[in-house]
Write a protein that binds this DNA or RNA. Sequence first.
DNA 1: TGCACCTTTTG
DNA 2: AAAAGGTGC
Length: 483
Amino acid sequence: MSDLILFWHRRDLRICDNIGLAAARQQSPKIVGLFCLDRHLLNLDDVAPARVTYMMGCLQKLQQSYAESGSQLLIIQDEPSEAIPRLATAINAKAVFWNLDVEPYAKKRDLAVSNALAQTGIQVKNFWDQLLHAPEEIRTGTGNPYTVYTPFWKKWNSLPKTQPVETLPIISLEEMTGLSAAEAEIARQAGAMEILPSARDLGFIWENPLLIEPGENAAQEKLEYFCDLAIYEYQDQRNFPIINGTSQLSPALKFGAIGIRTVWQATQILMDNCRNEEGRTNIRTWQQELAWREFYQHAMYNFPELADGPYRQAFKDFPWENDEKLFQAWCRGKTGYPIVDAAMRQLNQTGWMHNRCRMIVASFLTKDLIINWQWGEKYFMQKLIDGDLSANNGGWQWSASSGMDPKPLRIFNPVSQAQKFDPEGEYIRHWVPELRRVDTKLLLTGNILPLERKFLPYPDRVVDHNEQQRKFKELYKQQKIVD
DNA sequence: TGCACCTTTTG
DNA sequence: AAAAGGTGC
């Protein structure tokens, strides 16, 4: 029996601090990597060109790492449940290892692959890698999953976190690993390419510069950069979209270009060395964001129906108005509300939007335009470089008030939000250049003078905030009776 | 990681 | 009179 282990990468596009890969390496010196460009990943209409470009960049770096180790990262563009058993059998692998995921599609796909591999007698081993705590670990006193963030955070924070795992080199000089030339030919015949297609080859064209550099090294550098300074001011600075006060690690965390244990350890070291209370509070605030990420992933794992619609009954048959013209105005950043338009243009042009603005535009779409939050959820997935089902769905359900957390009906006021978080109008002026010369006070309220407006290529407000919020509350009141 | 509306405090 | 604080949705 060969001792070759096929390691299937999915949301763990890295070598370091990779639980499943480390386990594989412990069992065998001969590891071959695999990635499946399956239809779900590429053919749906909610895939963002920026995100695919980032992912392909990560794969390219990962392939280099494998090559430098004397092994290969094989690429399959086929149905995993057919292609993986076919490949594993052809190259005589003794086992296929992979790290688990929380998404409904991934769970279903993995089950099909596991079942198909069971038929061939090839061993399967799975690991939890992308979370600090696996879904089964976080349970209430009665053994149920949490549906509210704060008690989840308390439990999650109380549990000890594991250190990053050490990954032995995939190959050491004495042990020749990877596929031989003859085996590589067999792999080719089984449908595995060694040439990585570009995002463009796959039909995803991203013309603008990629905001975040792909790959493991770049992610590590981003973490170190953030931990140098910005994390100490995170709580104060994260709300201002003109400031680079956030980590921008979300694409790396989405695709596993960095290990979550590595991230946590970096914050803990800062925490242990930080002498002042204020610094620790800021670090803690960022750690809570990591907990939000896990909260939403656990929620998706435990309640997969979240992916298909609102959690709360009151929103199951909500009479959304779903006006196509208003939706187009929102998408294009032409609502006449400067902060909303600035944010949407940032998204369209860079594939990224500051989180404060994500909340503002989400509230605006749902509460002001009275459009189903799922339209916005999908549009974000079509644009975001860090688009992730659990985080995006969680965020949108939070904004729509349709999610699990019991909460007041949050209706953001786009004017007061702009006044609070872009007080000088710098962010607005950057992304809505036609308003550059408008007086700051008027810019923030959006009350551009009629005379000035005549000469600006900027739209009138598509709706009136006060009127719409009254209307929304009325609709909500009627729905709540059913709840 | 809300806002509106109210009361209390401050200068 | 403005700022700060409390409360209900």
